[in-house]
C-alpha cells in the first residue's frame, strides 16, 4: 500500500511537471520557430545563452535562481515591491523545472519547424495568406507531431528535475517533495522500500509520457 508521502510526491510531481510544461510551451515553441526561420543580430549568442541550462549543473541553475529570487535579489520582494512567494514553494519548483526544460523544448521545436519545407510557406503566402495565417494554417499543423514531442520531452525533463528544484523549492514532504527529491530523501533516511516505490512510479510515469506521445503522433499520421 502506498503511504501518503508517496501519493503526495506523485501528485506534486505531476502538478509541477505539467505546470512547467505549460509555462514553457509558448515561449519554447516561439523560440524554436525564431531559430528555425529568422535571422537576427546576435542570434548565436542568444542561442548559446538559452541552451545554458543544458550544459550547466542543475544545481548551478538553482543557485542563480535563488540569487535572483531572494528577498534582496533583482527579482526579490524588496525590488518588486511585492513578494512573489516562490522560494520553498511548489511554484518555485515549477520555475526551476521550467528553466531546465526550456532549452529542450526550444531545440526539439526548432527541429520540428526545420522539417517543414519553407517553400510550402512561400506558396501559402503567394496564395494570399498573411504571416499569421501561414503560421497557423501551414507551419504549425505540419510541425504538430514534432511539437507534441517537444512538449513531452519538456514534461519528462521536468518530471525528473532534481538539482535546481531542491535548491529553489527545498524538499518538504507534502509541499515541495517530488518523486525525484523523494527518492533522495528516502535513501538518506534509509527507507529503501519507499525509494523503490518512488523509483517504480517514476519509471511508470516516464514510460506513460513517452508512450502517449508516440501514440498521439502515430494516430495523427494515420488520420
Amino acid at each position: 500500500m502506498l503511504d501518503s508521502a508517496v501519493v503526495d510526491a506523485v501528485r506534486l510531481s505531476l502538478l509541477i511537471a505539467a505546470s512547467a510544461t505549460a509555462l514553457v510551451a509558448v515561449p519554447g515553441v516561439a523560440f524554436g520557430y525564431l531559430l528555425a526561420r529568422r535571422e537576427f543580430f546576435g542570434r548565436s549568442v542568444v542561442e548559446a545563452l538559452a541552451a545554458l541550462p543544458l550544459y550547466c549543473p542543475p544545481t548551478a541553475v538553482g543557485f542563480v535562481l535563488l540569487a535572483l529570487l531572494r528577498r534582496d535579489g533583482p527579482l526579490g520582494a524588496d525590488t518588486l515591491g511585492f513578494d512573489p512567494d516562490l522560494l520553498l514553494t511548489w511554484r518555485g519548483a515549477v520555475l526551476a523545472s521550467a528553466c531546465m526544460s526550456f532549452p529542450l523544448v526550444a531545440r526539439t521545436a526548432r527541429v520540428a519547424f526545420e522539417g517543414v519545407p519553407a517553400r510550402l510557406e512561400t506558396m501559402a503566402a503567394s496564395l494570399g495568406a498573411s504571416r499569421v495565417q501561414v503560421l497557423w494554417r501551414v507551419t504549425l499543423p505540419l510541425a504538430r507531431g514534432g511539437l507534441v514531442a517537444a512538449l513531452l520531452v519538456g514534461f519528462s525533463r521536468a518530471l525528473g528535475e532534481f538539482g535546481a528544484t531542491v535548491i529553489v523549492a527545498g524538499n518538504i514532504p507534502g509541499r515541495t517533495q517530488t518523486l525525484a527529491t523523494g527518492i533522495y530523501d528516502a535513501l538518506q533516511v534509509g527507507r529503501g522500500e519507499r525509494a523503490l516505490q518512488l523509483a517504480a512510479l517514476s519509471v511508470l510515469l516516464g514510460f506513460g509520457a513517452v508512450w502517449t506521445s508516440e501514440w498521439l503522433i502515430s494516430r495523427r499520421r494515420r488520420a
Binding site: P117, R119, L120, T122, M123, A125, S126, L127, G128, A129
Partner: peptide, 15 residues
C-alpha cells in the same frame, strides 16, 4: 511581394 502580384504558380514540386 508575391502575395500582391496575383500570380497562380504551379512549381515543379507542386507544393
Amino acid at each position: 511581394p508575391p502575395a500582391r502580384r496575383g500570380v497562380g504558380y504551379v512549381p515543379q514540386d507542386l507544393l
